[in-house]
Each structure stands twice: as structure tokens, then as C-alpha cells.
Amino acid sequence: MNAVRRLLLAALLAAAHFAALPAGAQQKFITVASTTSTEQSGLFGHLLPIYAKKTGVQVRVVALGTGQALDVARRGDADVVFVHDKPAEEKFVAEGFGVARREVMYNDFVLIGPKSDPAQVAGGKDIVVAFGKIRAAQAPIVSRGDRSGTHSAELRLWKMAGIGLAAARGPWYRDTGSGMGPALNTASSMNAYILADRGTWLSFKNRGELTIVVEGDQRLFNQYGVILVNPAKHPHVKKELGQAFIDWIVSDEGQRAIAGYKIGGEQLFFPNAKRG
């Protein structure tokens, strides 16, 4: 790129910046890369106004799959990550992109399926057995297929059930490569099974014939963690503001706020931060 073109591009960006500048003064903010499940369950809609009121800091949430959220943070485009895939998070920290991982809360995954239940799994307490039955019946199941935390969890369950997806794959296994919501829409329209996080399921409206068929297995445990992006890798990371948010969310006050979020009287997330 030569100098003239660089200059033109800069001018264009400046114009863009100017044109789209919001009317109000620039507020202090941090950017959090998080997952669709936390955003779409409405948790952030509940938490962030509380935090903004207390501190005046706006938390901007970019909701992606866990894998994508970690990638965005790797590139330095977020200050904090708030996701749910422990092995991937630990790898992220080990690579030096994150400072330290703190556990925040958990909820659980649930197996969703049609009321007609072609694989006869409803009411079971063993998710691994249920996966085996679905495979045996070749009942349609929708996979996120997007490297999200839910996708990782699903892949772990197949492994536990001793099913090699590479070989077992067939028309019954629908790899959609989409977010939790779109995948649920797909499952709803074709009456397929799907592994979902409970939060998204509870706030999901287009259920059609779908219902929860398996829940309560401890292997469906879904842990959320929060990590500050390493300022040593990305110097522009808002270290203090980001750390302040993390400190708040694992504090008694933050944990109480998480516990206070309910849909239809049902609590969606269960705080479990260890005292630091």
C-alpha cells in the first residue's frame, strides 16, 4: 500500500468516525467477548445495568461462540472473555493470551428432543446412554458444529459414549455450524434432538414440539469462566477497568446479582466463584 492510498484510507476512516460519532460524550467502557448463551439468555441484560449504575462503566458484550470469542481475544479485540469451555480457556491462558482464569458460575446443559421421542430417551438420567440410543436409532440430532462451548461439550459426550463421529456420521447427524438459537430453530423445524444450555433454552420461544428429555446428569455440568486478556500481549487492553469488572462479578455482590436472574421464577445461573 503506497502512501497516498494509506492517506486516503485514513481520511475515509476519519470521515467514518466523525459521521457515526454518537451525540453524547464518550463513556468509559470495556469490551467483553462472550458467548451467545449468556447474552441471549438475558443474563447480561440483567447484570450490566447494575454494574453500570454502580461504576459508570459501560460493558460492551460481543456475543460469539466460545471458540470465536477466544479468537477475538487472541487478536486483542476484547478486554475480557467470559465463556464456558474449561479446556479451551485453560489453553488460552497457557498460551499467554489470558492472565488468570476465574470461575464465575455454572448452569447445565439439557438434552432437548421432540415429544414423540423416537430414540426413547425421555426421562433418563444418563446422558451418555441417551447419546448411545440416539446413535442406535439414528434419530436426527442437530449439532452446533461451531467450536462453541456447547459444541465442545457435545463432542466430549460422544467420546464418552464411545462413538467415533467420523465413522458414525450420517444423515441423522446434522452439523449446522450455527449459534445456539439458530441451531434450536433448526431442531425445532425438523423435530430433532439437540444439546443446549439451559439458559438459552429457557429464553427460547420457537419451541414447537421440543421439550427437555434428559437433564440432571452431572456430566451436563456447564462451568463459566472469566479471563482478563493479557496486557503484556496487547498493551491497549484496559487492564484496570477489565480487572475491576472481573473482581465485581466474582464478589458477593456480583454473585448475588447472578443468582437473582430468573425467568418465570426459575434461576438460570448458579454462582460458584471461589474466594480469591
Binding site: L12, V62, D77, H236
Partner: peptide, 24 residues
Amino acid sequence: LSRAGPLGSMGILFTPSAMVFAQA
């Protein structure tokens, strides 16, 4: 516009300015 990209130092990713830029 990503921090790791050539124009990352402007810090306008995830802002309306970035959207204007892309749409333009």
C-alpha cells in the same frame, strides 16, 4: 481493524465507525 491488523491502532473495531467503514 482488528488490534492485530494494520489499522488496529485506531481502536474502532466494534464501534459504529467500523460499521460505517464496512458499509461504505
